[in-house]
Design a protein around this nucleic acid. Structure first.
Ligand SMILES: [Mn+2]
Ligand SMILES: [Mn+2]
Ligand SMILES: [Mn+2]
Ligand SMILES: [Mn+2]
Lengths: 218, 218
DNA sequence: ATACTAATTTTGACTAATCAAAATTGCAAT
DNA sequence: ATTGCAATTTTGATTAGTCAAAATTAGTAT
């Protein structure tokens, strides 16, 4: 059985890989993500390689094997189903479920997880709009169009908010920018690095590019 | 923060203490309960003593301090609320929830736990009839009268089944001996070490003393 | 080519939890 | 009083995961 440490590393490598072209994650970057010193990440990556979960090219980076990827998808499935369950069944706020799921994802059994999946009616996305991998390890890929690069003056639907920090999620909720909401980008100023967004019935909201890049639409 | 290992030790010491007069648990007994070799239990007990959770008298036994007891009650509260939640909210069988709760009890936060408590309407007992400690660490003491020593030929109510083994719980369920059920002990044969029990509407059931001692009534 | 730098790896040390096996001890039976 | 034994403790190792700090290396700039 993979320890929760291994599960966390593998999950983070998987997510970091998504943002690269070659799927190679530098060990230093992994260390930053995992909040450990570089040497710790190096030895962990060697261990993952020894156990067949990753391929490790010294001074180059890590990449998950097929097995590592399947494990990562399993952990992500647990994480995201738990997040949705905490919101739907227990009424937690979408800004607090990430932290909770970070622990529970290592403690919940397959048996309980499938009950949760049934309870939720086999959902395809979590409260933040992130896709939930299937039990067989298939995951839809989410929209890549954000408020920072979408068409202007067009009615669009928010599909995903890609930042787990409570303060950010609370702001998005106050601004009416939650998955499912309709929005229109009124104006985008490349020089100022800001967009003016008009959510459903609400007042216009100004977002900097760094924030706008985290809100995806369809 | 106490590790899950520490939480498990403290919980087990607490439960073992309940069965002794002086509240002293021999280290060897603790080792057996925890499925570790005696030396492991000795060093763990020293560590618990160093961190103020227990008092350790070499070659005599361990006893929890007030702090250790409070921790044990907190873990027990988590365990039992989770068991009931798994039964009530997700429809798991009472024979399988113990194993699940054994892991989840270390991963669930106070915030989530109180939501679960609200959802369940602040219950006082878990699916096996074990009392659920309050958030402040108070726990009712359960009935000590079992089918092995209760009054004969009298209508009584099953209040607790004190064995977590799935096979035992499944048998009790098939026999109609679940908390809340009405029963009558038809006959008790001290020599044969067996009791004949008549549950609510069901057929008579014969239990050996070792089994009868695990079913408590009121 | 040389020197510098930033990323990475290596080395050595530490903690928590465990086991195997040897040493100790308290007590009971002779 | 001795002896023997069963429980307990001690000792020495091991594994997973981590950090601090030194060593290495692959470029980059001169
Ligand atoms: Mn996690
Ligand atoms: Mn999420
Ligand atoms: Mn446990
Ligand atoms: Mn129980």
């Amino acid at each position: 059985m993979a320890s929760s440490t291994v599960e966390n590393y593998v999950k983070r490598i998987f997510l970091a890989q998504q943002t690269t072209a070659d799927g190679l994650v530098p060990v230093g970057q992994l260390a930053t993500i995992m909040n450990v010193v570089p040497g710790t990440a190096t030895s962990m990556v060697k261990a993952l390689s020894d156990s067949g979960l990753a391929e490790y090219a010294p001074r180059t980076g890590v990449r998950l094997t097929r097995g590592g990827e399947q494990l990562a998808l399993h952990v992500l499935r647990r994480h995201r189903l738990l997040e949705l369950f905490l919101v739907k069944a227990l009424g937690l706020d979408w800004s607090e479920v990430h932290t909770e799921a970070e622990e529970l994802e290592h403690a919940v059994s397959d048996r309980v997880l499938e009950r949760i999946d049934d309870f939720l009616g086999h959902p395809s996305v979590d409260p933040h709009g992130d896709p939930i991998p299937s039990a067989r390890g298939k995951m839809a890929e989410p929209s890549a169009v954000s408020l920072a690069d979408c068409e202007v003056k067009k009615r669009l639907r928010v599909s995903r908010v890609a930042d787990q920090q409570p303060a950010f999620l609370q702001l998005m909720e106050r601004s009416g920018l939650i998955p499912g909401a309709l929005v229109r980008v009124e104006n985008r100023d490349e020089v100022a690095g800001a967009v003016v967004v008009v959510p459903g019935g609400d007042d216009p909201v100004v977002l900097g590019f760094s924030a706008a890049r985290k809100v995806f639409v369809e």
